[in-house]
Amino acid sequence: MKRYRAFCFDLDGTIYRGKKAIPSAVDFIHQLQKKRLDVFFVTNNSSKTPSQIKETLRQFGVDASEKQIYSSALVTAKYVREHFGKAKVFVIGQDGIRHAFKQQNIAVVEEQPDVVVMGIDREITYDKLTKACLAVQNGAALIGTNEDIRFPTEEGFHPGNGSFVKLVSQVCNVEPVFMGKPSPVMLDMIRQEYGYAKEEMLMIGDNYDTDILCGIRFGCDTVHVNTGVVRTETVKEKELQPTYVVDDLSGLEI
C-alpha cells in the first residue's frame, strides 16, 4: 500500500458490527495512531452526536476526538442552512441530527415545515411517516441524511434510513435529496479543513454503494473490507473497482 496522510473510516460494518468490535480494524487504527497518521471517522449514521460517537468508539477500544468525527447530520444541517436559510424544518431522527440543527440555529417544528429532513429513527412510527408525507405533499422539500437501505448488526441486517425516505418519496412522487455517502461532501470537508491532496487520502469501508463509491466520486483511493454489508464477490463484479480489496484490515500493511 502506498503512503497516505489521512485514513477515513466508515463505522458500522468496518470498525464494529452492532455491539461487537472487529478486532482487525481496531488493531489497524492503533497502528496508524502509533505512527501519528491522521484518522477520521466518516459515518452516515445521523442518530448520534459527535460526543456520543466518540464514546461508542471508546467502548470498542478506539480513542478519537470530536474533530475527527464527520457525520451525515453535520453535513445535512449545513446544507439546510446554506440552501434554505431560516426555513422551518420537520425532523424525523434522533439526537445527532437535532443537535446539529441546534448548532446551526435552525428552527425544528411539528407543523407547516418548509423542509422535511429524515435521519435514522429507531422509534419511527406510522404517525411520523404520515406527517412527513403530508408536509411534502404540501410543498416541503424532502432531504435524507443518507440513503442506506440496510445496515449490519450481530443479529443480521436492520432497515436503514434510506428505506424510510424512499417510502415517503414514493407516496409523494418526489425525488429526495440525500446528503451522506456516496456523496463526497464529507470527504471534501475533511480535505478543505486539513489541506490534504486527494491522493493523500484513503476511504475505508464495507459498503460498496456508499463508502467505496464515495471515495471514487471524491477521487481518492479506497479499501473495501469484507466485514459488513457487501461481500467481496459482489464487489468484484462492479465496473468501478476499489483500489484495494481485503477480507479484513489485517490484510493491509502500512
Rank of each mutant, 00 (worst) to 15 (best):
P159I: 09
R191D: 12
F178N: 03
P182M: 07
K181Y: 03
G162P: 09
L167Q: 14
I149E: 08
M186V: 10
K166V: 07
T145W: 15
S183R: 07
H158N: 00
V177A: 06
N146M: 08
D148N: 04
N173Q: 12
V177W: 00
A141Q: 14
L167A: 15
F157M: 15
P159G: 06
V168S: 06
K166S: 13
N146F: 01
E155K: 14
P182W: 04
I149C: 01
S183L: 04
I143M: 00
A141I: 09
G162W: 06
C172T: 13
A141H: 15
V168H: 11
E175T: 15
N173M: 08
I149T: 02
H158Y: 06
V171C: 13
R191H: 13
F151M: 04
G160W: 14
A141L: 12
P159D: 05
P176Y: 13
P152F: 00
E147V: 03
P182H: 05
T153F: 10
V171H: 12
N173R: 07
F164C: 04
K166A: 13
L167T: 15
R191L: 11
G144E: 04
E147F: 00
M186K: 08
D188Q: 15
P152S: 00
M189L: 13
T153Y: 13
V185H: 09
N146T: 10
E147L: 03
L167P: 12
P184R: 03
G144H: 03
E175H: 08
F164A: 00
I190M: 04
P152K: 01
H158L: 10
V174K: 01
V171N: 03
L142K: 05
E154F: 00
I149P: 02
N173H: 10
P176H: 14
E154P: 02
C172E: 06
R191W: 07
R150T: 12
P182F: 03
G156I: 11
N173V: 03
T153P: 06
E154H: 04
H158Q: 00
G144V: 01
P176R: 06
F151E: 01
D188G: 05
G144K: 01
K181S: 08
F178Q: 01
K181A: 06
H158F: 11
H158K: 09
D148I: 01
S169N: 10
I190Y: 03
D188F: 09
V168W: 12
V165C: 06
G144F: 04
N161E: 03
P182E: 01
T145L: 11
V165H: 05
G160V: 12
I143T: 00
N161T: 04
I149R: 08
V174W: 14
A141C: 14
V174L: 07
K181C: 03
S169L: 10
G162M: 07
M179E: 07
S163N: 08
R191C: 13
G156L: 11
G156Q: 13
L142E: 07
E154C: 05
C172F: 10
D188N: 13
N161A: 06
V185L: 09
Q170N: 14
V185F: 12
I143C: 02
D188A: 10
E155I: 13
M189K: 03
F178C: 05
S163E: 11
V177T: 14
R191Q: 15
F151H: 09
I190P: 02
D188P: 05
I143L: 08
V177L: 04
